[in-house]
């Protein structure tokens, strides 16, 4: 597990998961799934902006935004019949929201493996979340390069 200091909200999510017994961790993942934020109005009719996370088995799309204060926002869509994938997207969307560009880029790539779900969720599924994080960082680098 990585020893880098995690941004507060990601650390909090990890602590929340690790404090629970295995079956309850899945219930928390379900809560995250239910809480995946709706897309803001301005992005609702712009599927062109969104990138498919092809590593996920279900259709998951993400879009990274850097706002005027250079804070990062991750928007994601995933189908209701894939709650696990929705849950992963929601953890990242909520965990990264409002962080600075540097903070997001410094999030350890093994964060998905560190939140206590490796027993309850198959390795294949967790790799989907790793891919989501990787694609988020790549998009972020592109956004920042375009801004500078």
């Amino acid at each position: 597990m990585s020893t880098v200091d995690l941004p507060g909200q990601l650390a909090e999510i990890r602590e929340d998961f690790l404090a629970l017994e295995q079956p309850d961790r899945l219930m928390l993942l379900l809560e995250f799934s239910n809480e995946l934020p709706e897309l803001p109005e301005r992005y609702r009719d712009h599927p062109d902006l969104f990138e498919r996370v092809v590593e996920c088995q279900s259709p998951v799309f993400i879009f990274v935004e850097v706002d005027a204060e250079r804070a990062v926002h991750l928007y994601a869509t995933a189908p209701a019949e894939s709650p696990t994938t929705r849950g992963f997207a929601s953890i990242l969307a909520q965990g990264l929201d409002g962080l600075s560009v540097d903070e997001v880029l410094a999030v350890p790539d093994d964060y998905p493996q560190s939140i206590g779900l490796t027993q309850a969720v198959s390795p294949l599924r967790l790799r989907g979340m790793t891919a989501m994080l990787g694609r988020t960082k790549r998009q972020l680098r592109e956004r920042v390069a375009a801004l500078d």
Partner: peptide
């Protein structure tokens, strides 16, 4: 199911859940 929490989002009344990964595979 393939999805480990799909059952919890709604299932046939009275059905129980058996997960291939956590229940049927040796850990």
């Amino acid at each position: 199911d393939e999805d480990v929490i799909l059952y919890e989002t709604g299932h046939i009344p009275g059905a129980v859940k058996i997960d291939w990964h956590t229940d049927l595979n040796d850990p």
